[in-house]
Structure formats: structure tokens, C-alpha cells
Amino acid sequence: MKYLGLAYFTPEKFAALAPEERKKVVSQCPELDEKMRATGKVLVSASLGDLDHWRTLRTRGGKKQVSDGPYIESKEVVGGLFIIEADSHEEALRIASMHPAAMIGEECDWAVELIPMDFYLAQ
């Protein structure tokens, strides 16, 4: 089974950290990401780009609309994603718990959401 992991954070809280605190939190990520990837079960892992360049596409009244910013009004936004292939939900949870957003960043509301999914590769 494949699982989508979404890593969330609160941009305002992250931006409110002093630069040295922000650097301290972020500097821990590469080692934690590598530990998670070393399981051999992570198919994709990515950090998402600057929120200033996010766009939301919707159809309203039969017309396409494009708006700036995250897709849903929320204090938390997705900052990264990963896909795990695991033999069980418990194994997927164990691997997802290694992601930086599951281990650090409490002061920025970092969190991980794990979602079972069907997965198809485009040919």
C-alpha cells in the first residue's frame, strides 16, 4: 500500500522565529530526511516552494478562476510531501514519524498527515 505524507506548518509562526532559531530548526531537517529515506520505503520526498508563488485554480459560475496563495483558508499550509510504500499502516506510521515535521518544529506547528492512497504512474 502507498501512503501520502503531508508536512504542515504555520507560516506566521515560522516567520516570527528569530533568524538563528529558524536556522537551528531547519538545519536538523537534512539528517532526519535522510534517516527516513534510508528505510528504502520512501518513493518521493519534496519540500514545496515559496508561498508567494502558489496559485489556486477553481471553477466558479462555469468560469476558471486563479487566485494567489494556499488553496484553502487555514493557518496551516503544506510545506512538504512524501510517498511511502509500506506493507502495513503501522510500518507507514513508523516511517512517517521520522519526517522532520513529526519530530521537530513544534514552535511552528509542524505536523504530518498520513493518508492511504491509490497511486498510478503516468506513462
Rank of each mutant, 00 (worst) to 15 (best):
residue 1 M to L: 09
residue 2 K to A: 01
residue 3 Y to L: 10
residue 5 G to Q: 06
residue 5 G to K: 09
residue 6 L to T: 01
residue 7 A to E: 07
residue 9 F to L: 14
residue 10 T to R: 15
residue 10 T to I: 01
residue 11 P to F: 13
residue 17 L to Y: 12
residue 18 A to E: 15
residue 20 E to N: 10
residue 21 E to L: 03
residue 22 R to P: 14
residue 24 K to V: 10
residue 29 C to F: 12
residue 30 P to W: 02
residue 30 P to K: 15
residue 32 L to G: 13
residue 32 L to I: 06
residue 41 K to L: 04
residue 43 L to Q: 09
residue 44 V to R: 15
residue 45 S to W: 11
residue 45 S to C: 10
residue 46 A to H: 14
residue 54 W to M: 13
residue 55 R to K: 14
residue 58 R to M: 00
residue 59 T to R: 08
residue 59 T to P: 00
residue 62 G to N: 08
residue 62 G to C: 07
residue 65 Q to I: 04
residue 67 S to C: 04
residue 68 D to W: 06
residue 68 D to Q: 12
residue 69 G to A: 03
residue 72 I to Q: 01
residue 73 E to K: 15
residue 74 S to Y: 06
residue 75 K to H: 00
residue 75 K to G: 02
residue 76 E to T: 02
residue 78 V to K: 09
residue 79 G to D: 13
residue 82 F to Y: 14
residue 84 I to E: 02
residue 85 E to D: 07
residue 85 E to T: 06
residue 86 A to F: 03
residue 88 S to D: 11
residue 88 S to F: 05
residue 89 H to E: 01
residue 90 E to L: 10
residue 94 R to E: 00
residue 94 R to W: 03
residue 94 R to F: 08
residue 97 S to P: 08
residue 101 A to E: 07
residue 101 A to S: 13
residue 102 A to H: 01
residue 104 I to R: 09
residue 108 C to A: 10
residue 110 W to H: 13
residue 110 W to V: 02
residue 112 V to Y: 08
residue 116 P to H: 00
residue 118 D to I: 09
residue 118 D to S: 02
residue 119 F to T: 00
residue 120 Y to P: 04
residue 121 L to T: 08
residue 123 Q to W: 01
